[in-house]
């Protein structure tokens, strides 16, 4: 053995422990970065895949399943602007009261809604589908186009973008609704892809 030469040494116990802690920390950071990136990238590309899989909580539970599947109501009964204007529109409490002045006494949500109605206030629903301010999406034109093309009722068109809302526990976003999504569909349907169609 040459004096002064490199002598392999057995790591001491403390050194091993430190290394182990460092390894765990690095692994943690790595997993953290992966998680964050997964969340960020997937949010960018579409809806988040890790969190928010369910739709947001609403101030009053509105079971689409009961109303649409069981009672067979049309989407357009409540979203009554969808065939006329840009926004599909969410009804004022007054519309709920056409039935719920008589039915649903036992439900907590109904009591809440009736109180709001009597005070002349509105239900502040949490918005699920949202496009940015600089995008002007018009429901009416899309419904008109698809119902003519496919020869179907207006309300059957809704699922194209919104999915099977009737089976959703809480309403959630079904498509990415990013610009790429819009443009792809516009191209497939020979719809205009001029920027000024949506951006002004």
């Amino acid at each position: 053995m040459i004096p002064g030469d490199f002598q392999p040494q057995k790591p001491t116990g403390t050194q091993l422990a430190k290394l182990g802690v460092l390894g765990v920390v690095l692994l943690g950071v790595f997993i953290g970065i992966v998680l964050v990136l997964t969340f960020v990238i997937s949010s960018w590309l579409g809806r988040p895949v890790i969190f928010g899989h369910d739709g947001p909580d609403q101030p009053i539970e509105f079971p689409h399943e009961t109303h649409v599947k069981e009672l067979g109501m049309d989407c357009t009964f409540c979203h009554r602007n969808v065939e006329k204007e840009a926004a599909a529109s969410v009804p004022a409490a007054g519309l709920c009261m056409t039935c719920h002045s008589a039915v649903g006494d036992e439900l907590e949500g109904i009591t809440k809604m009736r109180n709001l109605y009597e005070d002349g206030r509105s239900i502040h629903w949490v918005r699920v589908h949202r496009v940015p301010d600089h995008v002007h999406f018009v429901h009416e034109a899309h419904i008109r186009y698809f119902s003519e093309k496919e020869g179907i009722e207006a309300q059957e068109v809704c699922a194209t973008c919104h999915g099977d809302v009737a089976s959703m526990d809480k309403v959630q976003q079904n498509r990415s609704l990013k610009m790429g999504d819009c443009v792809n569909c516009h191209k497939q349907n020979n719809a205009p892809t001029d920027c000024a169609t949506c951006h002004y």
Binding site: E85, A86, A87, R121
Partner: peptide, 25 residues
Amino acid sequence: ACGLPEKELLIDSPAAMPEDLVSGI
């Protein structure tokens, strides 16, 4: 021509209106 109860015609006070009531009409 919708035959709805009078109350639905009355939109909230503009200052307090939730955005989902926006109809675009």
